[in-house]
Amino acid sequence: MSTAAKMTGNRTGMQTSPELAEELIEGATNATPSSQGDAQDIADYRGEYIAEGFPIGSLPTVPVSEEGEADEDELGMAVFLDKLSERLAYERTGTRLYEALLNKCETLGETTPGPTLEEIEHIGREEMEHFLLLNETIAELGGDPTLQSPSADVAGVTSLGIMQVLTDPRSSMAHCLQAMLTAELTDNDGWQLLIKLAENLGYNELTTQFETALEHEEEHLQNVRTWLSECVLDSAEA
């Protein structure tokens, strides 16, 4: 435990000051809500906005057939491009996340248990290669790799918290690995889904390339899971 943590202690729990806690409970228990109902009322409010039906954004556009109407294949392609864009955004951010993890490990020093600098560099390099593969794939399919699709946008929102953990100078290696586990679990499922979409659309060569990427991701997941587990178990024994 650092000196700063020893000096202040964690004050968030009620047992920090039992007398104040008792007064707090007494006050809240004796008060009367100004309106009837429960948390369902919030859901009703939210539901009104959901029902309006505004989307986050539109799917990527794909070359339209000569008849001018999107057929089933084109819709399938739009969904494929949406998920490719999502994966691209994820791998692009993933590269930056592993840069931050490398930075943390370089500064704190390698520890056992925990990843070595070389192991982090290995994963980071593969994340970047996956990003480049997706960038090239989208362009070859006639899509725009710089476009932010709705799924890519949502992935960005979801991973903001992970970035905050990785770039916080106060987070520990175990905190960072916990955050990266969330990222890697999602990444594994993301690649599996891309493989299914590629198979359904008949892109056999892409399917093979994506399966190789998935093998890398499975290794990343396994490594992160092991490092995290060992770090936490080790700290519990210290």
Partner: peptide, 12 residues
Amino acid sequence: PGTELVEKRSAF
């Protein structure tokens, strides 16, 4: 366009 990672400008 996209990111400088396209040009492989990264620690990796």
